[in-house]
Write a protein that binds this DNA or RNA. Structure first.
Lengths: 165, 165
DNA sequence: GACGAAAGCTTCGCTGGCGAAATACCTTTC
DNA sequence: GAAAGGTATTTCGCCAGCGAAGCTTTCGTC
């Protein structure tokens, strides 16, 4: 059975020079990610959260109980510009899910931490998000998932360490 | 060697219930796609194109010499809202890369086609984009690429045919 | 100990995308 | 043959993100 990317590629096979394998991989990843964002947005509406808000809470929550991180750390981890992270934190803070604390040792810095309400909503949202992701990734058995994760990791390592092999 | 996603997951292993495999896959795909968009944007600057413009030209070009498609077809294929596609076509048309032709049989419809200039720029841009994508996907050998493409395809098929197994 | 460079975050102006409403056209029905 | 309903596209108001400029605080150097 063909997916939309198969059809796309077949349509102009021979009409232009390019690598079909690479095209297929890249385009499919783009579509899957886009689908995820849209599906998660509608699922997360149940707790009044948007994808980008959940994502931010999620990485903050990963920091443990205290759940602290500086905006620039989060921006780097989430591949967002510093300005973009300021905006995200603004809305989260206004919603009372996150708190900004000026660091006392280095007063240029700001620490961000989850409020208890933020943590609660994050935990609730995790279930919803999990269902959407499972629905997509779940077509693959555990072994295939491991293979996929490993292949993606090799590409991400390259991207994160541009110098090296 | 660990990538940022390994570190992320390790950081809160045991702190919350979730599927590590799924998390790793989803997060890596998101980062890779984000990286691609940013890297392609800077590469494509050489021909004065942005990622979304290239993407649109690309699917139009795939339609063959005539290169025609309606906005709604393109919107569906590229996972963009109809309103978003109108915006894309506006900028492309203003740049002279694309032409809108009102259909004569059904005057509700509009056909979009590449101008010759649009086709020329698309071909130039394809090389640049290819380099960026190859740099990422190229870490994998041909066999691994096939494996990856097949796994992604299984997920995309599920997404495109929600009813079925 | 003072001054210039750098670090960390925010503000500002702009852009692409979304959903909802509006517009234009076609088709079916009575 | 006029009204009702459906389809294709655009317009409108809004939002998150980006890059560049700006502000405050700290560091390095003499």
């Amino acid at each position: 059975m063909d997916d939309s990317v198969d059809r796309h590629i077949a349509r102009w096979r021979g009409k232009a020079p390019f690598d079909e394998r690479v095209e297929a991989i890249v385009t499919r990843m783009q579509f899957l990610v886009k689908h995820l964002a849209q599906a998660k947005d509608s699922a997360l509406a149940a707790v009044g959260l948007q994808d980008f808000e959940y994502e931010t809470l999620h990485w903050l929550g990963a920091r443990g109980e205290g759940g602290r991180a500086t905006p620039s750390e989060l921006a780097a981890e989430l591949r967002v510009s510093p300005a973009g992270m300021t905006g995200r934190l603004d809305t989260l803070e206004k919603a009372g899910l996150v708190r900004r604390v000026r660091s006392t040792e280095d007063r240029r810095r700001v620490d961000v931490e989850l409020t208890s309400e933020g943590r609660a909503i994050w935990l609730k949202a995790m279930d919803l998000r999990g269902e959407v992701e499972d629905a997509m990734v779940g077509v693959l058995g555990p072994d295939d998932q491991d293979v996929l994760a490993a292949l993606l990791k090799r590409m991400l390592l390259r991207v994160e360490n541009p110098g090296q092999a």
